[in-house]
Simulated assay, not measured.
Amino acid sequence: MREIVIKNIKDRFGVLSELASSLTEVQFISKLDVPKYKTIEDHLWCIVGARESYFKALAAGKWQGFSCSLADGSDKLSYELALRQTQERFDRVLSNVLWNESTENILASLYEHETMHEGQIIRLIYGLGLEMPQSSKWA
Rank of each mutant, 00 (worst) to 15 (best):
G129R: 09
S136M: 01
D91Y: 00
D72T: 03
L83D: 10
L70W: 01
V26S: 07
E80A: 08
S135H: 13
Q27V: 04
Q64I: 06
M1V: 03
S69A: 07
P35C: 13
A71N: 10
T103H: 03
E101V: 04
I6H: 12
Y79L: 07
E104Q: 07
H43T: 09
R51V: 09
L98S: 14
D72V: 04
A60V: 12
E52A: 07
N100W: 08
S78Y: 05
K76G: 00
R123V: 11
L128C: 00
K38C: 13
S17Q: 09
L32F: 07
S135D: 14
K62W: 02
G65E: 04
G119Y: 00
W45P: 00
R89N: 13
L32H: 06
L70K: 00
W63A: 07
R92C: 12
L58K: 04
K7F: 05
E131I: 08
S22W: 04
R12Q: 15
L94T: 10
K56C: 12
R51T: 14
V34W: 02
V34C: 01
E3H: 10
R84V: 13
E131G: 06
G119W: 00
F13P: 00
L32V: 10
I29S: 14
F90W: 12
Y126W: 07
H117M: 13
I29D: 14
A71F: 06
V48D: 01
Y126S: 02
K137I: 15
A57M: 07
K31A: 08
A139V: 04
Q27P: 03
Y37C: 15
G49M: 02
V48A: 06
Q87V: 06
E88I: 08
T24P: 05
D72E: 10
A59Y: 10
E52S: 08
L44D: 03
A139Y: 11
S95K: 12
G49S: 04
A82I: 05
S67G: 00
L23W: 03
T24F: 04
I6K: 13
Y37G: 12
K62S: 11
G49D: 02
A57Q: 04
V34N: 02
I106S: 12
L58R: 05
N8H: 11
W99G: 08
K36H: 11
D91K: 06
W138E: 14
E104V: 04
K62C: 05
E112Q: 10
V34D: 02
F28N: 01
Q120F: 10
L130W: 05
E41M: 12
L83V: 09
V48P: 03
M116D: 13
E104K: 05
Q87N: 13
V34P: 00
H43R: 06
D42F: 08
S95P: 06
Q120M: 13
R2K: 14
G14K: 13
F55H: 03
T39C: 13
E88P: 01
E114S: 09
D42M: 11
F90Q: 11
L107M: 07
